[in-house]
């Protein structure tokens, strides 16, 4: 299947200034990332704060321009930001954030906010829009009478449903969800996760699901990419990656998830904090925290290499680790 969205070797560099008159240090927030997502499929992106997963999502949506590499939507390069073509593309892809209250306008009713994208993109007549509103609210499981309320009159779960209704208003082909359930309680989180999978099944939406919650990502993703300091260190079929991660960082991350009952992976407790992205260690960026690092890891940056099972891993020892895990 041809991918709906494809990122090829995409990098995004920010300049972090030190002090008032200091010169900028380049920070590679996203570094040579290649991803693709097909219609009806979900790609999960996991990693810790500052690993570049949110920036990758914004690059996928064309909200930021890559400094190098290319992003293609439906096989064609993205339109330049601000142009009419770019605005038309916006209707095709939508972003859902963690904090629904912050993503909404507190002065507008739910109905006004859900209908706003239709007005902006000039879709339908007034009567058709009202009808569309009723359908959207039903699809996300919001009672019709909540349409006239304001965001602060809704619970957190209801707000996230309203944000989703707004995102779905233009019938997008791609949804980028950045920590969409992280602020919600477990019982409400399950409602939203089920709704996302149902909506995807019904409409064939492609999703990029960015989260630090590995159990949720495992549940809803077909494929997963693990990021560390701006790069993908492991990528493959979600269940396989979570069952037997190969990259030492991916292993530590998966093994860190607290579970009840016996664990399959022995807990690996990493030493230290993730390094400052502005001071990326030479060689493999993970080597200072890696228990398996060799001399080579300190100097030579490993490429993302496809393994025998189709998984991609950026580690000099990937081959032997894959054999040991199998």
């Amino acid at each position: 299947m041809t991918p709906l969205l494809e990122m090829q070797g995409v990098s995004r560099v920010y300049r972090a200034r030190r002090g008032l008159f200091g010169t900028g240090t380049p920070v590679r927030a996203v570094d040579h990332v290649s991803l693709q997502v097909a219609p009806g499929r979900t790609l999960g992106i996991v990693g810790e704060s500052g690993c570049g997963k949110s920036t990758a999502g914004r690059l996928a949506l064309g909200l930021e321009r890559p400094d190098s590499g290319a992003v293609q939507f439906r096989g064609a390069p993205m339109a330049a930001p601000g142009t009419a073509a770019w605005r038309a593309e916006r209707a095709q892809m939508q972003l859902v954030f963690q904090d629904p209250l912050g993503a909404m306008d507190r002065r507008l009713t739910i109905a006004q906010q859900v209908l706003e994208p239709l007005e902006i993109h000039g879709i339908g007549t007034a009567a058709e829009r009202r009808e569309r509103l009723a359908t959207l609210l039903r699809d996300v499981g919001l009672r019709a009478d909540l349409a006239e309320r304001h965001p602060h009159q809704l619970s957190g779960g209801q707000r996230q449903r309203a944000v989703l209704a707004r995102a779905l208003a233009t019938d997008p082909a791609l949804l980028v969800c950045d920590e969409p359930v992280s602020a919600l309680d477990v019982s409400i989180q399950a409602q939203i996760v089920n709704m996302l999978t149902d909506l995807q099944a019904a409409r064939g939406i492609a999703m990029i699901f960015i989260s630090h919650d590995l159990a949720v990502v495992r549940l809803i993703s077909h494929e997963v990419a693990v990021m560390y300091l701006g790069r993908i260190v492991e990528q493959g079929e979600a269940e396989a990656v979570f069952a037997a991660p190969i990259h030492p960082y991916a292993r530590a991350l998966v093994s860190a998830v607290p579970v009840s009952g016996p664990r399959r992976l022995e807990r690996i407790v990493l030493s230290g904090d993730p390094p400052n992205p502005a001071q990326r260690p030479p060689g493999c960026a993970f080597h200072p925290r890696c228990a398996l690092a060799l001399a080579r890891c300190r100097t030579e940056d490993p490429d993302l290499v496809t393994q025998s099972d189709g998984r991609m891993v950026a580690c000099h020892r990937a081959g032997e680790l894959a054999r040991a895990a199998a």
Binding site: V193, N194, L214, A243
Partner: peptide, 20 residues
């Protein structure tokens, strides 16, 4: 039942209806 697992088959979550 509402909490996704890290192991075993992937299953649909059983959400608790309504809210607190």
């Amino acid at each position: 039942a509402a909490r996704p697992d890290m192991a075993g088959p992937r299953r649909r979550l059983e959400a608790i209806n309504g809210g607190v």
